[in-house]
Design a protein around this nucleic acid. Structure first.
Lengths: 225, 225
DNA sequence: TCCATTCTCGTCACTCTGACGATAACGGAG
DNA sequence: CTCCGTTATCGTCAGAGTGACGAGAATGGA
């Protein structure tokens, strides 16, 4: 059988919410092509490795290890013949959503990795497109899944969850309506009985993620309606 | 640079609605492995070909040419090391939705292609999983996009559109509420002024697909709520 | 002419949502 | 210790959307 030969890579769109803003993990390229340009972290899929396993491995290498929590899913594949000047490379992009706490951008591998604003320009290869697709996927997933909890630590307040939505969607939400919505949607979050202490204002109840995998009804953003 | 070598294929989940049921286009394999088993149509991506272009080419080869109308989008990629016993093959699955009319399953390429029920068992490779993912994607897309029109000819009745939903979702819908929903959602369909003639019952107005790309609010299936 | 069939329009109760008022529970200033 | 700013939480209310279903309109066939 005769067929062309490809290299297959995994690229990661790793998102988190820091300082009230959506950030993406980028690395500065240390070699040609696109030397010194920001790029999505990624690497070649090994010879005996599943795509998902390669994505998990790269994520662990770049972030030091994404502890529990967080979320990783396949995003899409990109394979234009000219996307990599070195040869025919198809990349299977993955989307990762992580809580802020874990890793201050300093893994084993990442030479110069940093959390950057998601409107970063001049990315290497077709990574701008991949990033845009990843962000849109994340925004969309927040509408009809409880995945916003992947951005939060194991226990979180409703306000923290709301700030995730506001950061990802880039629009303010009414705290009272959001509170009602989240607490009345079965399986979205469940109360822990504990609450915060020390901060300004009234202490807030702490929740953990619930068992639901789909939100019914969905929480729709303004832009979509 | 040292990296493993892959073959990259495109596999197609081609869906249509025939005789009130959701059908998938399958081909009988004429060679090992999985000789004589049903499989998704597909083939290798050419050396200088984009993934989307490869998918369009395969679709044209298998269906004789999917005329205007219809819809093609990337579904997901599958790359378990052992998924093809002949070597390391990553497949980029695509999802196609076609109106019934065009092709009675007899293209240039397809040796033995046929429209089969979507619960077909014993597919080759990991095609059962790919098919399941494709069907779920289609069901989901009907909820929040006007993509059901891709299953219909250029002009169609509301009843025909409803039958698409019923076939894809496998559940009956109230004709009156569906009619209200579709006609009041801006951009879903637009009236042509013409209507059907000859059939039983009152003639039905004919519509064409509207300009909307997203349904607001979505049409949710029972199973999801 | 009557009838079965299918399309289309209406009605009504119920739920959900957005906008927003009001109260609760804290820390800190005076 | 009281007042006050801040944040969390609960309530209220009108309007939109939906499911369930009645009823009339427009056809072909018995």
């Amino acid at each position: 059988m005769n067929y062309p030969v490809f290299a297959v890579t995994v690229d990661l769109v790793v998102l988190t919410v820091r300082e009230g803003e959506l950030k993406v993990l980028l690395v500065r390229r240390g070699l040609e092509p696109y030397l010194d340009r920001w790029a999505l972290p990624g690497g070649f899929v090994h010879a005996d490795e599943d795509l998902a396993a390669a994505a998990r491995r790269e994520l662990a290498e770049e972030t030091g290890l994404a502890g529990p929590g967080g979320h990783l899913e396949q995003l899409a594949s990109y394979g234009k013949p000219e996307r990599d000047p070195r040869g025919r490379v198809v990349t299977v992009a993955h989307l990762a959503l992580l809580p802020d706490l874990p890793t201050p951008t300093a893994g084993t591998d990442a030479a110069a990795a940093a959390w950057r604003p998601v409107d970063q320009q001049d990315l290497a290869f077709d990574h701008h497109r991949i990033l845009a697709d990843g962000i849109e996927r994340a925004r969309s997933k927040l509408e009809y899944t409880p995945l916003a909890t992947a951005f939060c630590p194991p226990e979180f307040t409703i306000a923290a969850l709301r700030q995730v939505y506001e950061a990802v969607w880039g629009e303010p939400l009414d705290p009272r309506n959001f509170h009602r919505k989240v607490t009345t949607t079965p399986g979205f979050v469940e109360a822990t009985g504990r609450s915060t202490e020390g901060g300004p204002g009234r202490p807030a109840a702490l929740f953990r993620r619930g068992a639901a995998t789909l939100l019914n009804p969905p929480i729709l953003r303004r832009g979509t309606r």
